[in-house]
C-alpha cells in the first residue's frame, strides 16, 4: 500500500457548457487501496463531481462502466491499477453518440439486441414441470448466456462503426446464437431468416476485436461462425 501519483487524460464534454469535447489532464494521489480503475475514478469524482460515468455493481456483472481505456474497450471495475500504463487515457466507447464525458447513448446498441428477438420462442404449451434438457445440451449455452450487454465488443467492431443501423453487431449475434443453440427454442429457421441479409450477419469479417475486448472472456466470433455455418448448410 504505497502512495503514488498517477496521470489521467480524460475525455470531457458537457453539451450544457462546452462548445466541443476536450481531453483533460488530471493527476491523482493514490494511497494504494485503489485496486481497480473504478476505485480511482470514484476518487477523482470526489474531487470533481462533474466527472460523469456510469457504474453500479463494481464487480463486472452489471456492464455499466464500459469505456475505452488506453485505446482498448474494457470495464473500469475489472481493470487493475497496479499494471495499467500511464497516462491513463479514458474515452467513451467509440462509435456511439456521446451524452456526456464517458457516458454514451446506447440506443442503437440495444435496438440491435432487441432486433434478434432475444427471448425463448416455443409455441407449444409448456409442460406442468420444467422442460427437460440434458446437461450436455445445457452446456451448449455456456459462453453465450453470460453476456452482460456492456457493449465493449460491438463498439470495438469496425463493421458496427460503419453500419450500426444495419449490422447486428457481435453482442446481438452472440445473443441470437444463444437462442439458436438452446434445445428448448423452436424458432431456429425464423431466427436464421431474420439474419439472412447482406448486412445483419454477413458484415462480420472475423476481425475478432470483439473477442479481444470481451471482459467476460466470451467469443462472439465463434458464435457468428456457427450461425454462418448453419446458413450455408441450409442453403445446400
Amino acid at each position: 500500500m504505497t502512495a503514488r501519483t498517477v496521470q489521467f487524460s480524460i475525455y470531457r464534454y458537457d453539451p450544457d457548457r462546452d462548445e466541443k469535447p476536450y481531453m483533460q489532464s488530471i493527476s491523482l494521489e493514490l494511497d494504494g487501496t485503489e485496486r481497480k480503475l473504478l476505485d480511482a475514478l470514484m476518487k477523482l469524482k470526489d474531487k470533481d463531481d462533474s466527472l460523469s460515468f456510469r457504474r453500479s455493481c463494481r464487480e463486472g456483472v452489471c456492464g455499466s462502466d464500459a469505456m475505452n481505456i488506453n485505446g482498448k474497450n474494457g470495464l473500469a471495475c475489472l481493470t487493475d491499477m497496479a499494471t495499467i500504463a500511464e497516462p491513463i487515457v479514458l474515452r467513451p466507447l467509440p462509435g456511439l453518440p456521446v451524452v456526456r464525458d464517458l457516458i454514451v447513448d446506447m440506443t442503437q446498441f440495444f435496438k440491435q439486441y432487441h432486433s434478434i428477438k432475444p427471448y425463448l420462442i416455443n409455441p407449444e404449451h409448456p409442460p406442468e414441470r420444467e422442460r427437460l434438457q440434458s446437461p450436455e445440451d445445457r452446456e451448449e449455452l455456456n459462453g453465450l448466456y453470460e453476456c452482460i450487454l456492456c457493449a465493449c465488443c460491438s463498439t470495438a467492431c469496425p463493421s458496427f462503426w460503419w453500419n450500426p443501423d444495419k449490422f447486428v453487431g457481435p453482442a446481438g449475434l452472440l445473443a441470437a446464437y444463444r437462442f439458436i443453440a438452446d434445445t428448448r427454442d423452436e424458432a431456429t429457421s425464423e431466427r436464421l431468416d431474420n439474419l439472412e441479409d447482406p448486412y445483419r450477419l454477413f458484415r462480420c469479417h472475423s476481425i475478432m476485436n470483439c473477442v479481444d475486448v470481451c471482459p467476460k472472456g466470451l467469443n462472439p466470433t465463434r458464435a457468428i461462425g456457427k450461425i454462418k455455418d448453419m446458413m450455408v448448410r441450409r442453403a445446400v
Partner: peptide, 19 residues
C-alpha cells in the same frame, strides 16, 4: 421457478434433465 424455466432461464441440469 418453473415459469422462469419456461421463460428460458438457463438453469444447470441434472442427468435426468431436471433443474
Amino acid at each position: 421457478v418453473i415459469e422462469l424455466e419456461h421463460y428460458g432461464m438457463p438453469f444447470d441440469r441434472l442427468d435426468s434433465g431436471k433443474i
